[in-house]
Each structure stands twice: as C-alpha cells, then as structure tokens.
C-alpha cells in the first residue's frame, strides 16, 4: 500500500515534473528564456487561459463541460467596454461585466439542471447565443473608448513596477478557488457530484444548486479574463476568445483532472496552464513556425494524457 501511495504522489506530480523538465530544456536552448522579464511575461500571457481553466476545473470535476467560456469572455468584455464608452463609472462597469458573466454561467447551470440537458449540448448552444449577442451588441465592430486609469491597470498595471496585475489577479483567484475546493463543504460537494451524482443527491447534497454555482463561477472567471483581455487590447472585440474553451480544457486535462469528473485538483490546472504557456513561449523563442507550433502543442497534450493513463494504472 505504501508503494501505491508513492505511485499516487508521483502521478500527481507528473505535470509539475513535465513543466520543470520543459523549463530546463528551454533554459539550455535559449538564453532569453530564464530571465525574470520573460518568465513574468509568460505568466501574464498565461493568466487569461488560467483564469478560464480554473472555472473549467470546477465544471469538469462535477462531470460537466463548459464550451461557452470564450463567448462569455467576449460578451462580458463588450458590455463593460460599451458601458464605459457611454460614460458609466469604470468600477461600476467592471462589476457589471463580472455580474454579466456570472449570470450567463448561472443560465447554463439552470438549463443543465432544471432542463435536465447535457452540459455539452447546453453550452454548445449558449456559446453560439452569447457570441451572437456579442456581435449584435457591438454591431460586429470593436468597442473602443475605454480610457480609464482603473480599467487600464487591470490588464497593464504592475505591482512594485515588476509583477503584472493579471498575474496578481491569477494568483489571488487561484488561492481563493483552491481554498473553496479544498476546505469548504461546497468544494467537497463539487467532487461528490462529479463522482456519483445519484449518491450525492440521496445524501442530501443540493445537486442542482451546486451545479448552478459551478457554472456561475466558470462564467464569472471567464468574464474576469475578458476584462483583462479588453484592458490589454484597449478595446473589446466581439470575436475575442474564440477557441479559448479548448485551451482551458487542455490545461485542466494536462493538470491531471479526469474528464469523467470526481477526480482532480486545481493545482494541476495551474501547472497545466503554465505548461501550455511555457511551451508557446519557448517555441516562439526558438523561432518555430506558428504552423508547426500547433502540431507540437497537440502532440504534447496527447503525450501527456497518454503518460497520465499509464501512470494511473
């Protein structure tokens, strides 16, 4: 049994070992990789995918999937930018955007629980709806005029003139979400619902409520990512975030969370997101063509999941 405990730990640490290994290789191959500036830059690039992937972790742990995250990102960003452009207080507009994201997520949760529909189907549909609404709202054009110091800070600011704000936001969100999953009754219920929904319901877990909360969290975090992106681009693009759901799912899966639900951890997701980010950065530094980058990224995901399966046996 002690052997299996060690094996389990190794299995859990697999993604981290992969990340460290990748960093070592890149440090050797490129002089520019292992610099404070570059590493902070990587983390800032990672932060948007990481925030979405944190929410996706909750969703996947509960046995679901959320394909609408990219569209929520775009619509929330557009709403916030639109409000600010029409003179609303930037802080208010920011919170409105976040609330918007949480509401869209809650709508997903409601449709899934009360409508008894598959998460894949519901979020596939809402992905299209939310994207369509973003296009309607913006008329298909970028929304500009978001010049506020507060909002600018969100994506472009630095703490102590060194650490980018998005990185700070990512780590705060990570800390809070880790605590929720690990130390609260709600977090316990996320795992239980994903592990055995029927047994959870019979045990008195408010399964529907838990699921709606989960999708609302996912929506909220997507909106947060959307605001950071809007701030960085200094405008909201109606087509922003297209395909982000797949990057987020990749980060979650790379982190060792089971797509079947009930098993996994958010630390893994952070590592998974970093892994994808470092790989992107490294391939850029090594001047690999962006066409080949896609091939390599896909192969890495396949390899990682394959290794994970092996180790799990």
């Amino acid at each position: 049994m002690a052997v299996s405990q060690t094996k389990k730990l190794l299995h859990k640490l697999g993604p981290l070992l992969g990340l460290v290994g990748l960093c070592v290789v890149l440090a050797i191959m490129s002089d520019n990789f292992l610099t404070v500036g570059n590493l902070l830059n990587v983390m800032r690039q990672v932060s948007i995918n990481a925030l979405i992937a944190f929410g996706m972790t909750f969703v996947i742990l509960s046995g679901g999937i959320d394909l609408s995250v990219g569209a929520i990102l775009a619509l929330s960003g557009a709403v916030t930018a639109g409000l600010m452009a029409s003179g609303t207080d930037p802080v208010l507009a920011t919170f409105a955007g976040l609330a918007c994201g949480a509401l869209m997520g809650a709508f997903n949760g409601l449709a899934i629980t009360k409508g008894k529909l598959a998460p894949f189907i519901v979020t596939l549909a809402t992905m299209t709806i939310f994207r369509g609404l973003a296009l309607v709202y913006t008329g298909g054009r970028p929304v500009t005029g978001v010049d506020s110091d507060f909002f600018f800070m969100l994506g472009n600011g630095y703490l102590g003139a060194l650490v980018p704000m998005p990185v700070i936001t990512m780590f705060i969100a990570f800390g809070v979400l880790w605590f929720i999953l690990k130390r609260t009754a709600f977090g316990r219920h996320v795992y239980a619902v994903g592990g055995n929904e029927e047994a959870s319901r019979i045990s008195g877990v408010h399964v529907d409520r838990v699921k709606i909360m989960i999708y609302a969290i996912s929506g909220f975090l997507s909106a947060l990512a959307g605001l950071i992106l809007t701030s960085r681009l200094n405008s909201a693009q109606p087509t922003a975030g297209t395909g982000y759901e797949l990057d987020a799912i990749a980060a979650v899966v790379l982190g060792g969370t089971s797509l079947a639900g009930g098993r996994g951890w958010i630390v893994g997701t952070l590592i998974g997101a970093l892994l994808i980010g470092v790989l992107n950065n490294g391939l850029n530094l090594l001047e690999v063509s962006s066409f080949y980058q896609q091939v390599i990224k896909g192969a890495v995901i396949l390899l990682a999941v394959l290794l994970d399966r092996r180790a799990a046996r």
Binding site: Y191, N196, A199, S200, I202, V205
Partner: peptide
C-alpha cells in the same frame, strides 16, 4: 447510489 467510490472513507462518511 450509496457511495462516491472515488472519494475517501472519510469524505463518504461526512458526505
């Protein structure tokens, strides 16, 4: 219907 098999004995008891 009774257990969440992937969770620990502790987590099942307090579910």
């Amino acid at each position: 219907q009774g257990l969440v098999l992937g969770l620990s004995v502790r987590e099942n008891i307090t579910l």
